[in-house]
């Protein structure tokens, strides 16, 4: 059962701006930019839509690669690019509105950057104590 076909095209960082421009000229709208941490790289999905046809461009980059901003083509992309920077610590060059890391005010910088930690199922007893003192959080 698939509601929508998943169209994903792998591209490189260098060809990103060109590809996005093609999409924009063809009349697609920008749906989202989302980032995923996979082992030692980041996968960035640029999603577009036109007449309910949903397409993705995918860029896979290493840890220290900086991304070019597509905000010259899609003005609204600043929100996703700042998010990418704030949560994953991926540098983005040439954003039209650059919040310099203050879009999301997180207590630890770049909280999503690290690969998934080893998970613990049971809540340790200590948690309850913490809840008691910091009360009223929920």
């Amino acid at each position: 059962m698939t509601i929508e076909e998943q169209l994903i095209t792998e591209i490189t960082v260098e060809s990103l701006l060109e590809e996005v421009k093609t999409k924009s000229d063809a009349g697609y709208r920008l749906v989202q930019i989302g980032c995923t941490r996979i082992e030692d790289a980041f996968e960035i999905n640029y999603s577009f839509e036109k007449d309910y046809r949903f397409e993705n461009l995918r860029v896979t980059i290493g840890e220290d690669v900086r991304m070019p901003s597509i905000s010259d083509i899609y003005w609204g992309s600043f929100i996703y690019e700042n998010e990418m920077h704030d949560l994953y610590g991926i540098g983005v060059d040439g954003m039209n509105i650059d919040f310099n890391g203050y879009l999301f005010k997180t207590s630890i910088p770049h909280p999503f950057r690290d690969a998934p930690a080893v998970t613990v199922k049971k809540v340790p007893k200590k948690m309850d104590e913490e809840n008691k003192t910091s009360g009223g959080e929920e």
Partner: peptide, 30 residues
């Protein structure tokens, strides 16, 4: 408006990534 849940799993009990793009986020530039 349109909301996207992007899910990625690797055959384990825990998913690798869930990305939620909610309508308000994309309505901010407009």
């Amino acid at each position: 408006g349109e909301c996207i849940h992007y899910l990625k799993g690797n055959g384990k009990k825990f998913l690798v990534r869930e990305r939620v793009r909610t309508p308000t986020l994309t309505n901010i530039p407009p």
